[in-house]
Amino acid sequence: NITNLCPFDEVFNATRFASVYAWNRKRISNCVADYSVLYNFAPFFAFKCYGVSPTKLNDLCFTNVYADSFVIRGNEVSQIAPGQTGNIADYNYKLPDDFTGCVIAWNSNKLDSKVGGNYNYLYRLFRKSNLKPFERDISTEIYQAGNKPCNGVAGFNCYFPLRSYGFRPTYGVGHQPYRVVVLSFELLHAPATVCGPKKST
């Protein structure tokens, strides 16, 4: 009989979020998941679920829940969905086509923008091939755009693969920082350890 609540607040209220190319993952297990707390949290810009209804989450049990978190621009949030393409979905964070879970995003301009620009948040701009679902690539190898080998030196046709967002408070909404948490639900042939409040007695 599990009684402790799942530590969703640790994920959602973290002081610093990860850059999207180096997205953070927390495994959540052996706890009671009260999703209504999240669902009623006012400032969400997006709360979209795939393969599961957000209002039914509290009735369900899962083997594991993974909480992935990172920061992207407002106009990139739409790429955090199954079957998407674009710089983020291709080179930074890719969801599987059969994704079961929820994508939760909110504007973090007050936290993550600075006058003069916040350059701490990076994304991958160049990559030889697209990421596989949930693949994480933190390499900083110089990207070779031409035929000539770069030998690890940036220059003509040789690019550092990461780019900084440089968030400023005055940017338009599409270019403002958004914090994103992706909850993915794993249902294995194993005992369920993460259940909603109704199922955990």
Rank of each mutant, 00 (worst) to 15 (best):
R179Q: 03
G86P: 02
T170G: 15
H189L: 09
R73H: 05
V115D: 15
L162M: 08
Y159H: 15
F126P: 07
R136W: 04
A18S: 11
S36M: 07
E135T: 06
L187V: 12
C6W: 04
Q144K: 10
S53K: 12
K198Y: 12
N4W: 06
C150Q: 06
S129A: 12
F185G: 03
V71P: 01
A190F: 09
K128C: 08
P96K: 04
G172Y: 09
Y123M: 08
S113D: 05
P133Y: 04
T140D: 12
T100F: 12
G146A: 10
W106C: 04
N40Y: 06
I2P: 10
R179W: 02
K94E: 01
N92E: 02
T140K: 11
I138H: 09
A46N: 11
G86T: 03
L125F: 12
N64G: 10
V65D: 01
C150A: 06
Y121G: 03
T55H: 14
V11K: 02
A81D: 04
G166D: 14
Y165N: 05
Q84N: 05
D112I: 00
I142K: 07
V52G: 02
R25H: 05
S29V: 08
R124I: 04
G166A: 13
A81S: 06
D90Q: 10
G101Q: 00
K148V: 13
Q144M: 09
N151H: 12
R27I: 13
P191I: 05
G83K: 12
P177G: 02
F47N: 01
G101D: 00
V181A: 02
N58M: 07
Q79M: 03
N151T: 13
V173S: 13
L95A: 01
Q144E: 13
F126I: 11
D9H: 13
I72S: 02
V173I: 14
T193C: 08
A14W: 00
S113T: 10
S164Y: 08
N87Q: 12
A81Y: 01
N109R: 07
Y39G: 12
S200C: 12
F126A: 15
D112P: 03
Y143Q: 10
L162W: 02
L111Y: 12
R27L: 09
F167D: 05
R179V: 04
D59H: 10
W106E: 01
K198D: 13
L122S: 15
Y143D: 12
A89H: 03
F17Y: 05
S53F: 05
R163E: 13
K199G: 14
P7R: 12
I72G: 01
D59W: 05
G101T: 00
F8K: 01
S108E: 06
I138M: 13
C158V: 04
K110R: 11
L131A: 03
A145T: 12
A22Y: 07
A33K: 06
P191G: 14
Y121N: 06
D9S: 12
E10F: 03
V11P: 02
S129E: 15
F47D: 01
A145S: 12
Q84I: 06
G166M: 09
K48F: 03
I104R: 00
E76K: 01
K48N: 12
L125Q: 15
I72M: 04
S129C: 09
S164N: 12
K198P: 13
G146P: 07
R73V: 03
N130F: 08
Y39Q: 15
P43N: 08
A145G: 13
G74N: 03
P161R: 02
A154L: 13
I142V: 13
R73P: 10
R136G: 03
G101R: 00
G83N: 14
F41Q: 11
K198I: 12
D68L: 01
I138F: 07
D98V: 06
Y50D: 02
Y35N: 06
N107K: 06
